[in-house]
Design a protein around this nucleic acid. Structure first.
Lengths: 125, 125
DNA sequence: CTCCTTACGCACCTTCGGGTGCGTTACCGA
DNA sequence: TCGGTAACGCACCCGAAGGTGCGTAAGGAG
């Protein structure tokens, strides 16, 4: 009987998720893991991301102080992105999530299959 | 030059986020942390969650094998929820996220403020 | 002279997660 | 007799996240 009320706004979980739960955010961070990289290169690395989505995601990360952006005004322009120390500090967390998935995601798959084949009430989807 | 392409579908990050990135999921797991608990009690604990959302969230977690559901058919019915071992294994990950937020979220707030007040290009929102 | 390139901005459209509100079963206390 | 209670299901609505496609600058390659 420790915890009483949990509020959405006050919960730290929600704050992190707000930052990294967007569709492409995690992949972008992942692609920056090994150091500075150009815009176009990121796009080539991440399969299926559109230019708009990549730009949007990077802007958001920049605003949140997780990545830095360096523009070299030439033509064509060169824009390089890198993780800030703050961004770096997130890496271990994401690694942990990744490892969890690597270890347990197959169980989730099985659970889903079992749930779906047994005539249990279907989840909305 | 290790990693080449990153695909959304193949990336483990995405799998975890698929599971825990819903609005209420983290809070529900959080409320189950200390053991078995009834539906109504969960709702009372989590500020602002609607019945539909709670049911939906629990169904999803059950389908994913993270929580178990035990129904005692009385009137009114008693439905109890608890974390499965699989669900339990997620707790450390979520704690880590929570700790990261506790340690660094203020920096994110500052970064945002700085970004917004300096006349940088506004993120869409 | 024309096309290709980089790193975007902008307008539009679709999808889906989330929210609101109402109905339901069957018992129990006032 | 009537309302309250627990744990939902169902129908409908809304807004935001995400996707598609087009325009753009200025220089270098052909």
């Amino acid at each position: 009987m420790k915890s009483r009320d949990i509020s959405l706004a006050a919960c730290s979980y929600s704050h992190v998720l707000e930052i990294i739960s967007n569709k492409w955010t995690a992949l972008v961070i992942y692609s920056l893991e090994n150091g500075t990289i150009r815009y176009g290169e990121i796009q080539r690395r991440i399969e299926g991301i559109s230019q708009k989505m990549l730009t949007q995601t990077l802007r958001q990360l920049e605003r949140d102080g997780l990545v830095s952006r360096k523009v070299t005004p030439s033509v064509p322009p060169i824009v390089e992105y890198a993780l800030t120390p703050l961004g770096d500090s997130l890496i271990p967390c994401m690694k942990m999530l990744k490892d969890w998935a690597a270890d347990h995601y197959s169980e989730v798959g099985k659970a889903r299959e079992a749930y779906d084949t047994s005539g249990a009430e279907p989840v909305v989807r």
